[in-house]
Nucleic acid binder design. Structure first.
Length: 870
RNA sequence: GCCCCUGUGGCGGAAUUGGUAGACGCGACCGACUCAAAAUCGGUUUCCGCAAGGAGUGCCGGUUCGAGUCCGGCCAGGGGCACCA
């Protein structure tokens, strides 16, 4: 009997309604079962969902559905990271209000997400641009401020001198403003900072406990925090060379052992000494100006050509009053790290060596390999950075660098300059405080007031929220809040006099640093319901892109600590398990005139080395480009509708998790989607055709006879699929399910004869339905109904496997001779090492290989392999 | 420039974490069914070789009875670098 094709377009909305009506996915805070919080990084509402987004949410959904089946009270919420620059750009370009643009996008994207059949708790949804949300963020800011976790300092921004606006690093292209094309300048602005450095040591040490995070992310965070132990050295300035009032230069170094290899000092272009020196030196001032035009991005600074300028200032060597060294301003020294000044030791650092070679400075080797000859050891083009022996270093000669470090530190601690020790041991962090001020409209207003009389004061909590005005003008560049006719004017909360609101808004990273906590009680009047936050947090499984490995995750870790210290919750680490997934990529298409074309506008033909494409509308040939991350600008996006309309959500879900391991990129291909859909139909046929013969049959495992193969296949797959889902190895789980379907195909067509087959097959199919349910929930429901089920699979528990059915009595051991596989041995699983060894030596090919001689060694790895060493 | 990651058939990838390299899928080819096509089902598919056999996990070297997996050195591609989110 022919089974009708499965029609997702009819079935999927029906089951989505059934789940909704049963209220299966709304998590209750008073549920007594153990909790499980699974969260995908929430999306920025850029316009439309593309298939890349849905991969992320599908992974979370598989975990959520699996954990529900395992008896957990699952929290799986969704929201919108809704503040940010693109909304303002849309306002400028298309004359649409950022708020309207954002909420329109959210509405579109919510509809798209709902088509995917995700088991989300929509009752907890919010957007970070909702007043209700940013109101509580302002409360947190005020609490942090009162706790001393907020600082006001100056920092540098990219300044567009034509548009008179601050530019994001992304808006600086090759040193020029993206709209005006003018070379950018660096400006100092007073800004708000969160004191994340107060937690530097804790954030570093606690990485140790994040054992469910990828090792690479932990490493990146460690390096980012960048704890180092070094020495602060005060170098005396040579009288007559230094600007008035300056008598020393502070340098932080992690290599004080190389102090006798020093040949120059280098200071940042915005170092106070550089500024003073430039006052009477036009050429130096011009050089500093040039440095300022590089913008504020570290990547741009450090990859630029290394340049320096001799200030004319000289320092005296701490261990030799007759030894003077020049002080350069260098474009690669950062004011933000250490003291903004270094001493250069060319022989021990490649960058210093390149600098010395460029400016004709001495190169004295001070560390050499243990086996080198001190008299002839030289450094010319390549610095020696490894461990070794000190040379040319007076009292340090013969020591190892680590000993020399201590010796220099001890000696300089005893010398004084201007009443302070010349050397002090210091722990330094690379991590800087988090600057959160943005000179933009579409963000959370910073709830502070500037009063002439009282200074800067926070807005009282009773007066919060400070809401964004809606009547704003985007016709000119810059922050519309600055130009608003009335919004800035406010009475000082302290003295009642005329005062001005802060017009900067918060970095959008602030919004995403605590949304996971808000989800635990999104209606609460306070930022959190402390009991709910403590009960649900930490997030058990957090899933998102590797691009967030450092900033977002580090900021969230800081925020959780700051919220703990201001009484909003009682834990330090927000994310117990972290998974970083890969992107969905697609090849790109370009018409002859350079236009990018969407996959839907192109017809691709041919295979095997000769793929070609034409534009459907014009029939003109199209250039096929490389695989790239799906993006609007390249038009290489595939929308979920394109798939759900023809194949259904289950096919899209299945395909996105097949093949590629979730942490790696996956290429979206039409063939792959079609293949996934064939599997959907295959499962449907398998169940549909067997169902009539299984009506009224009670499921039962078969332990003997031919039907046992069916039970063994099912129980083995069930165990493996559960384990794979727990390890987030979705591609392997899917391969297992394929194998099971392959194994069941034959028996399903051969019902009758063996009386044990029908119960075994029924059980196997029921297990199969539960295994596919996290991946293809709609199909699972349809199959379950076909088998006579009257409840929802989404509400059913995960089946249990029988341990007796997942082990085989006989095993096949590969047999190697000298490490190369030459054959196999089939033997009882219970056989001991001696029995295995004896059986192996009896094998024909082994006897032939040994040719009568005794083996030198036989290595038996139990249940794995045998290696005969001849 | 600095930090981190990845590299396996025509393609995506698997390999119980040092133990049979290529599971599973895609594509391709052959066959069955069909008047025919689609759909479906069965088979073949790392490379060289008729075969026996040999080679093989980006490249070079090392450790080991045994290396895709560990170590050293390269090459190529990707992510991040603090105002993209």
């Amino acid at each position: 009997m022919a089974t009708e094709r499965y029609n997702p377009r009819n079935c999927e909305p029906r089951w989505q309604t059934a789940w909704d009506e049963a209220g299966l996915f709304a998590a209750r805070n008073d549920d007594p079962r153990p909790k499980y919080y699974v969260l995908e990084m929430f999306p920025y509402p850029s316009g439309r969902i593309h298939i890349g987004h849905t991969r992320n949410y599908t992974m979370g959904d598989v975990v959520a559905r699996y954990r529900r089946a395992r008896g957990y009270n699952v929290l799986h919420p969704m929201g919108w990271d809704a503040f940010g620059m693109p909304a303002e750009n849309a306002a400028i370009q298309n004359n649409i209000h950022p708020k309207a643009w954002t909420y329109d996008n959210i509405a579109t994207m919510r509809t798209q997400l709902k088509m995917m059949g995700l088991s989300l708790d929509w009752s907890r949804e919010f957007a970070t641009c909702d007043v209700d949300y940013y109101h509580r963020q302002q409360v947190l800011f005020v609490d942090f401020f009162e706790k001393g976790l907020v600082a006001r300092k100056t920092s540098k921004v990219n300044w567009d001198p034509v548009d008179h606006t601050v530019l994001a690093n992304e808006q600086v292209i090759d040193g020029r403003g993206w709209r005006s094309g003018a070379p950018v300048e660096t400006r100092e602005l007073a800004q708000w900072f969160f004191r994340i450095t107060d937690y530097a040591d804790d954030l570093l040490q606690s990485i140790e406990g994040l054992d469910e995070w990828p090792e690479k992310v932990r490493l990146m965070q460690r390096n980012w925090i960048g704890r180092s132990e070094g020495l602060l050295i005060r170098w005396p300035l040579v009288d007559g060379t230094a600007p008035a009032g300056e008598s020393e230069l502070e340098v932080y170094t992690t290599r004080p052992d190389t102090i006798f290899g020093a040949s120059f000092m280098a200071i940042a272009s915005d170092h106070p000494l550089a500024r003073k020196a430039a006052e009477g030196n036009a050429e130096l001032a011009a050089f500093i100006e040039e440095c300022r035009r590089m913008g504020t991005s570290v990547a741009a600074l450090e990859s630029a050509e290394k340049k320096g300028f001799d200030t004319g200032i000289r320092v005296r060597h701490p261990f030799d009053a007759d030894w003077t060294l020049p002080v350069y301003v260098a474009n690669f020294v950062l004011m933000d790290y250490g003291t903004g000044a270094i001493f250069g030791c060319p022989s021990g650092d490649q960058r210093d060596l390149d600098f010395a070679n460029r400016y004709g400075l001495p190169v004295v080797p001070v560390v050499m390999p243990h086996d080198a000859d001190a008299a002839s050891f030289q450094i010319t083009e390549e610095a020696y950075v490894d461990d070794g022996v000190m040379i040319n270093s007076r009292f340090l000669d013969g020591m190892r660098p680590a000993e020399a470090f201590e010796a220099v530190a001890d000696r300089l601690a005893g010398e004084t300059l201007n009443g302070r020790p010349m050397g002090e041991r210091r722990v330094n962090f690379r991590l800087r405080d988090w600057g959160i001020s943005r000179q933009r409209y579409w963000g959370c207003p910073i709830p502070m007031v500037h009063c002439q009389a009282c200074g800067v004061v926070p807005v009282p909590k009773a007066d919060l929220p400070v809401t964004l005005p809606e009547d704003v003008d985007f016709s000119q560049p810059g922050n519309p809040l600055d130009r608003h006719p009335t919004w800035r004017d406010v009475a000082c909360p302290t003295c009642g006099g005329a005062a001005r609101r802060e017009t900067d808004t918060m970095d959008t990273f602030v919004d995403s640093s605590w949304y996971f906590a808000r989800f635990t009680a999104p209606q609460e009047n306070d930022p959190t319901d402390r009991a709910a936050a403590n009960a649900w947090l930490p997030v058990d499984q957090y899933i998102g892109g590797i691009e967030h490995a450092i900033l977002h995750l580090l900021y969230s870790r800081f925020f959780t600590r700051a919220m703990r210290d201001t009484g909003h919750l009682d834990l330090a680490e927000p994310f117990k398990g972290l998974f970083t997934q890969g992107m969905v990529v697609h090849e790109t298409y370009r018409a002859g005139d350079g236009r990018w074309l969407a996959p839907s506008e192109v017809r691709v033909s041919g295979g095997e080395g000769g793929r070609s494409a034409v534009e459907i509308e014009t029939g003109q040939p199209v250039t096929i480009g490389g695989l790239e991350k799906m993006s609007k600008s390249r038009k290489n996006t595939v929308s979920p509708e394109e798939i759900t309309d023809s194949y259904g959500a289950d096919t899209a879900r299945w395909f996105m998790l097949s093949d590629s391991p979730p942490e790696r990129d996956v290429e979206w291909t039409d063939d792959g989607a079609a293949g996934a859909h064939r599997f959907v139909q295959r499962v449907w046929r398998l169940v549909g055709e067997a169902a009539p013969g299984l009506a009224g049959v009670a499921p039962a495992a078969a332990h003997d006879g031919a039907a046992a193969a069916v039970s063994k296949a099912a129980h083995k797959a069930l165990k493996a699929v559960g384990e794979d889902i727990e390890r987030l190895a979705f591609n392997r789980a899917i391969a297992r399910i394929h194998e099971l379907v392959n194994a069941l195909q034959g028996p399903a067509g051969a019902l009758g004869g063996d009386a044990a087959l029908a119960p075994a097959l029924r059980q196997a199919l029921e297990m199969l339905v539960h295994m596919i349910a996290p991946f293809m929930p709609h199909l699972a429901e349809e199959c379950w109904a076909a088998l006579g089920g009257t409840d929802l699979v989404a509400a059913r528990p995960w089946p249990e496997h029988d341990p007796a059915l997942v082990v085989d009595d006989e095993i096949v051991l590969p047999v190697q001779i000298n490490g190369k596989k030459r054959g196999e041995l089939t033997i009882s699983r219970a056989a001991d090492q001696v029995t295995v060894e004896r059986a192996v030596l009896e094998l024909d090919f082994v006897r032939r290989a040994l040719d009568g001689a005794a083996p030198r060694k036989v290595i038996v790895v139990p249940q794995r392999i045998v290696n005969v060493v001849a």
